[in-house]
Design a protein around this nucleic acid. Structure first.
Lengths: 345, 345
DNA sequence: GCGCAGCGTGATATCGATAACATCATTTGG
DNA sequence: CCAAATGATGTTATCGATATCACGCTGCGC
């Protein structure tokens, strides 16, 4: 039932207060106003009060563009994620946001949609805005993107995968180790015919690392990959449901299914219930990343817990430490993971 | 299993390429470079090529701070939401992000956590960065926040609730109408004893409008509020489960429960199943906002569909139209909603 | 009593781009 | 054929802050 109401005057007030005006009002020079706002301890108590009164009286908001240009510093951090509407990323972003805000920094966000070209454009745009640092939720980049970053030398945190030679710093868990650990976990529980379901591997090094970890896990268990299965599925509940149907049709001897991303495992579980298949009796199901939901279905789903918020917090902290040039910093931080054994396996 | 690897040299390259350098390299003046980058049609084909070659050769990235300061324009939009890690908001943000990116604008995000003081701080910080526009997912603000915005006259879209006198423009659906419509819908299905469950009403005008809509719905149905119930619950699956337990204990005669936010309805459904209570036979359940999940549980849950992405897209479009000073714009846009009747009611 | 450090303040240059106007060559048209 | 229009480029002032250095005043030591 859309409806629109017309309006005549689209004009609002206009800009215009400069530090000069505040200075005149307070009877001091602009430098004194500048100091009062950014380094109040360098201004005498009396002047400080007069300046603040003037600022409040006219609702003065300093021009950060001019300030940043002049000081050649900025307090903006650019974050690039493959998708904003995805709790894996948005959970990290929220933690980044909180950490930055606590230190007076701003957050700029871009959504790359898993495209390296979009990432490069976003990086360029952030560098043009002279962000003081970058957080990239991706560890693959175009050649030009890497060159831009290292040419300009902007502090950068790569997130989402442990990488051996980061552009600058890296904060993550190991997708390989995590997927391998879960595979071995399933093997130890007695499952031998294990299927691995992931998102599309193209342009997604995280997904590939997980697949590699799965294969390494099989090797460690002494299971031949022939008796197992590795497949791709679409994201979302739908993708999981679809995957389990395909498995039942083409490889009914599979005993356990390891969903390596997203909420696919829940979709699969719901599909099993719809069809009256027991979990874990017909198919054991395990997941990757501890979304709230996994704990609230019945049976509760075994999963890997990834410290999303911790990754966001640590990334932001490390970035700010780097920006503020604090002593020696770790180049790669591995925040680990945990396997949470529940009822579905 | 955290582990850290030390690094000695925290220094990377340093900044330093100015338009001047590119100009020298291309053998032209800085103005020509500036034109080549922002209005290429004003530069002859030959010079344009030389400038582009120089830009590419040194990976020059123009300083947007300086450009914005000089031109007194910027292409950054500030968005403030109550929480980033919440698909209601992140769905909207994603649409905003896509629309802005398509037109070459940037996105700055702040998380107010439903606190008006935080919102005010974020607004101040965005204004200091001289954003060209604001999108506020909230229609309540501190007095100072309103004053700042109207003093400076920055284009602003309020989202999340239809408001009669917006600061500038408003894009939303009506929480009141939506909650009322769902209440009436339940009444028409034959339910008379209806419970309304919402998030905390404090500092949340959307939640209050929904409660008011619920009460108005009851009046329209001719149902006395005494036979019904209005309560608050925590967010998340947990909150819904908790709410249904409280209702069963204190008001077992309730026939239908309308969860007015979040994924609470799913939590409630799962809790009912855990206890063997039939849905909708013991409790009918309806929800607000069509999250994917509602369609994938069994029984599928009746809900209100809010055009989140549409709201984001329209907000961004309208904001850009306003920024670019296009003719007459609607002051309030109501994007409506739909009731989706499914199995749970 | 003099020199000198330290503090609060102000004057001026500067950050790196764009706006506005100036310049020169080339068309255009009556 | 010359005035005026057009197009490509350069010159200079400016955006609104901060950096840097200079200045006057106070207090302290010797």
């Amino acid at each position: 039932m859309p409806a629109e109401t017309a309006v005549q005057d689209t004009r609002l007030g206009k800009h215009g207060l400069r530090m000069k005006d505040v200075a005149a009002r307070a009877g001091v020079s602009v430098m004194t106003v500048s100091r009062a706002l950014s380094t109040p301890e360098k201004v005498s108590g009396d002047t400080l009060r007069r300046v603040q009164a003037a600022v409040d009286a006219v609702l003065y908001v300093p021009n950060g563009l001019a300030g940043n240009l002049s000081s050649r510093r900025s307090k903006a951090v650019g974050v690039i994620v493959p998708g904003i509407n995805n709790s894996l990323y948005s959970g990290m972003i929220e933690a980044v946001s909180a950490t930055l805000r606590a230190q007076g920094y701003h957050l700029m966000i871009a959504d790359s949609g898993l495209s390296l070209e979009n990432e490069e454009k976003a990086i360029t745009s952030f560098l043009a805005q002279r962000v003081c640092g970058l957080i990239l939720h991706n560890t693959q980049h175009t050649r030009k993107a890497r060159n831009l970053i290292s040419n300009i030398g902007v502090p950068t945190i790569e997130v989402g995968n442990l990488v051996e030679r980061p552009i600058d710093l890296c904060v993550s868990y190991s997708n390989f180790d995590a997927a391998k650990a879960m595979t071995v976990h399933l093997g130890r529980l007695g499952y031998r015919r294990i299927a691995f379901v992931s998102l599309a591997l193209a342009n997604n090094d995280r997904a590939r690392k997980r697949r590699d970890g799965f294969l390494a896990g099989l090797r460690e268990l002494g299971i031949s990959a022939d008796s197992c299965l590795s497949m791709e599925a679409e994201s979302g509940l739908h993708g999981g449901a679809d995957a389990i149907k395909r498995i039942a049709k083409t490889a009914p001897s599979i005993e356990a299914v390891f969903f390596s991303a997203d909420v696919m495992a829940v979709g699969a579980l719901l599909e099993c219930q719809r069809r009256g298949w027991g979990v874990p009796s017909k198919f054991a199901i395990s997941s990757f990343d501890d979304v709230d939901l996994l704990r609230h279905v019945s049976p509760m789903i075994t999963t890997l817990q990834i410290p999303r918020a911790e990754i966001g917090r640590k990334s932001a902290e490390l970035l700010l430490a780097r920006v503020q040039n604090r002593s020696t910093l770790p180049k790669v931080v591995d925040l680990g993971f945990d396997i949470i054994q529940r009822e579905s396996t």
